[in-house]
Computed example of a mutant assay.
Amino acid sequence: MIRVKEPGLLSTVQDEGRHGFQQFGVITSGVMDPFALRIANLLVGNDEKEAAIEVTLTGPTIEFEEDALIAICGADFSAVLDEEPLPLWRPVVVKKGSTLHMKFSKTGCRAIIAMGGGLDLPFIMNSKSTYVRAGIGGFDGRAFDKGDVINGKPLSKTSSQIVRSLTKKTRKALTAKWSISSVYLAELYNRKTIRVIKGRQYDDFSAESQQDFWNEQYKLSSQSDRMGFRLNGPNLERIVSEDLLSEAVAFGTIQVPSDGQPIILLADRQTIGGYPKMGQVASVDLPALAQKKPGETMQFQEVSHQEAQRLLLKREQDIRELKWIIDKKN
């Protein structure tokens, strides 16, 4: 059981999303950084898809009312446990009565707090993800507020094994000496460019706009949220005047409305869209995209469908190898 003493800017429960209901107008939602969610869950012995707490820009303060196993992955919020710095990307046993405090994000934008056993919350349409606008999923369909109490589920066999391997010390923070490679994480997150596949209406834009899209930088607007990143940069001019039929959109679809400024659709995107699609962010770069802060710039790099698929398969192989290493460590 945990008690929220301060909720932070936006702390919600998220998992891999609410799949299979878009034909009924229900959005997918889900975690913004899927890599951080999967690794955080593996570190505490959970299934990769288990729901966890996603925090944004300013982290929460949480009191643990019973012993727990946690892992924090994603952005660096200068987390401390009872005034002791808490490292990222590794399992930590937290003793009853301890308080976790996460400050402003030092690098990145979002972090995941996974708890061994998972969160004891109901499934709504096969998911625990919070969609705040509709008030469904997660903790009462909303972001955490001061005083909220969230129950955890019992530790799994794997989680219990991890706890046993870490409880040979006497400090409150029983932290693994090992963690996910910082070199690997830097390669994944510290990208100068975001790889993009050409969209269905790419050829509807002028040659100059196409060049600007690949060669110029775009700044992330402060008017961005989990639904979409609004970008400020060179206007993209569509030279085809016909209206478009609305069609399905995905996490990472880059639409261009009439003002010429691109919008990247994200986890809380609508189910269909009628704006022309300039591109689609390669799935392998969605974690890096999710960690962008308002005011930061990004540049796009063209990648083929085949290369994007190869990169995603390589990422999946990396995760399988990381899972094998984590299992061996415990």
Rank of each mutant, 00 (worst) to 15 (best):
A176V: 08
A308C: 03
F104G: 12
G199Q: 13
A40I: 05
I254E: 01
L312M: 15
G8K: 09
E187L: 10
A282H: 01
I162H: 00
G138P: 06
Y202L: 07
D67V: 03
A40P: 03
K277W: 02
Y218W: 06
D268S: 08
P91R: 07
D145M: 14
A288F: 05
K328I: 14
S209H: 06
T167A: 09
K328D: 13
S78Q: 15
K219F: 05
S11W: 04
K177W: 02
D47K: 13
T99C: 08
D225Y: 01
G138Q: 04
I254G: 05
V303Y: 06
Y189P: 11
Q280N: 13
K103A: 12
I319V: 15
A40R: 00
Q280H: 07
M298I: 14
C73E: 02
V249F: 04
F123M: 15
P87K: 06
Q22I: 09
F205N: 13
V55D: 05
K146E: 15
A282F: 01
S258L: 09
L236N: 00
S105M: 07
S78W: 07
I180G: 08
G279T: 03
Q217F: 13
N46P: 10
V284Y: 06
K169W: 02
V4W: 01
D285N: 05
S182N: 14
S159G: 14
S127M: 07
K95H: 10
R90Q: 15
N46Y: 06
E208I: 14
A79M: 05
S98V: 02
Q309N: 13
I180C: 07
V240L: 04
K153H: 00
G59N: 09
V249G: 00
Q261F: 01
I326T: 07
